[in-house]
């Protein structure tokens, strides 16, 4: 018997496109490591967005050819990058002055969990024996004006990442503005989690079934 699978929700690239649409022209943006990096490839034409990487560059450009690799030009994920014309280099204290001082407009991050109140856990699963490592995550969520989260809606074993209370160690409390998943775009508002848009072949009941925290129809 042939089973034809219906596509449910968005692909990673479509998720990145959705985030990119919400980044206004002339924004200064910090992208986290992994899925958030895809966002840079999908900024709509006509918008000029400047990328900040917290290890010390404003004006991060695309990944270079292998032959152009410069070990002294890397991003926060320690990958080789390029600098755009008009870019600037600076030391770490200045870099985090931009972050903590509320000069960066938007930060797009991945997450292990986001709570209904906008708490985010994305630095540690708290597993015994794991080496704790935080990097700039806590500074970013404390300092950037708007925090977007891009993540799969559920973990590989089917657990909801959008939860009532984070069970993993917190990165920051009440900081997330919008979460972009493969199933939906959800805004964290005073009244609760408001579903702004759902992916292909996702309806509200399906979405709620796959979400621990209560959702509100927009």
């Amino acid at each position: 018997m042939e089973i034809k699978e219906t596509k449910v929700g968005w692909s990673r690239i479509e998720m990145a496109q959705k985030v990119a649409l919400d980044i206004p022209d002339e924004s200064y943006v910090n992208l986290g490591i992994g899925l958030p990096e895809l966002v840079a490839d999908h900024v709509p034409e006509g918008r000029e967005v400047i990328y900040h990487t917290e290890n010390g560059l404003l004006g991060m450009g695309p990944i270079p050819e292998e032959s152009e690799r410069d070990p002294e030009l890397i991003n926060a994920g320690k990958k080789n990058i390029t600098a755009i014309k008009g870019g600037s280099f600076f030391h770490h204290a200045d870099s985090f002055t931009m972050i903590r001082g509320k000069h960066i407009d938007i930060c797009v991050l991945g997450a292990f969990q986001v709570s209904k109140d906008g708490d985010i856990a994305n630095w540690s699963t708290g597993k015994p024996g794991a080496i704790p490592a935080v990097g700039g995550a806590m500074d970013l969520v404390a300092g950037v004006k708007r925090i977007f989260v891009i993540t799969q809606h559920n973990t590989k074993d089917g657990k909801s990442k959008l939860v009532n209370e984070c069970t993993y160690p917190l990165t920051g409390k009440g900081v997330v503005e919008t979460i972009y998943t493969n199933l939906a775009i959800i805004d964290l508002k005073k009244e609760g989690l408001v579903v702004r848009e759902m992916g292909p072949n996702v309806d509200f009941e399906y979405l709620q079934e796959h979400t621990e925290a209560p959702l509100i129809k927009s």
Partner: peptide, 12 residues
């Protein structure tokens, strides 16, 4: 031993 410090806090 390890003292873990957020990156921006470390710089500051």
């Amino acid at each position: 031993d390890l003292e873990l410090v957020p990156q921006g806090t470390l710089a500051e």
